[in-house]
């Protein structure tokens, strides 16, 4: 069983230069790929974080922050703030939870930000049935709101590799 990540911990979303504009993080930094059920992040609190990130950035040139290839950019998010997200629809708070869990099968510092409805992971193309409203809501709209919220609680940082 994976360990629970504390609310006090911060996680890092490593950013492509294409996701920064005017010094701001663009919402596309938090897109779920097709069939993907979580947004990949890394945990600076884990000892392998620096080597994990270096391994990723060196194989993806768009993630170098500068020409000297000695920096990268990340969005830092607090786990507690992520978990505190509430998604409303038509005045009703949906049972949508945003959760952060370790996914250390890839690298030890790897984790995922999940969006769930009634304990089921939401991905692009899904439809959520809202019983109290007797209506369907596209998961794509929910995920757009999650992206917007993640941008709001992110802090942009430049780091040395």
């Amino acid at each position: 069983m994976s360990a629970v990540i504390s609310n006090n911990e911060d996680v890092a979303r490593i950013l492509s230069n294409q996701w920064i504009s005017n010094g701001e993080i663009l919402h596309m930094a938090f897109t779920l790929r097709d069939k993907e059920t979580y947004i990949s992040v890394n945990r600076p609190a884990i000892p392998s974080y620096n080597s994990d990130v270096k391994g990723f950035v060196t194989s993806h040139p768009d993630f170098y922050a500068d020409q000297r290839h000695d920096k990268y950019i990340r969005a830092m998010l607090n786990v507690g703030e992520i978990r505190a997200m509430r998604i409303d629809y038509a005045g009703i708070t949906l049972n949508v939870n945003v959760e952060v869990e370790p996914r250390d099968i890839f690298t030890k510092s790897h984790a995922g930000i999940f969006t769930r409805h009634q304990n089921k992971n939401i991905k692009n193309g899904d439809t959520l049935y809202i019983k109290s409203l007797d209506t369907d809501v596209s998961a794509d709209e929910i995920l757009l709101e999650v992206r917007s919220n993640l941008v709001d609680i992110s802090t942009l940082e430049s780091c040395n590799l």
Binding site: W19, E24, L26, M28, T31, R33
Partner: peptide, 8 residues
């Protein structure tokens, strides 16, 4: 507006 690419 700011414009950027998405992975999909």
């Amino acid at each position: 507006w700011m414009i950027g690419p998405d992975v999909n």
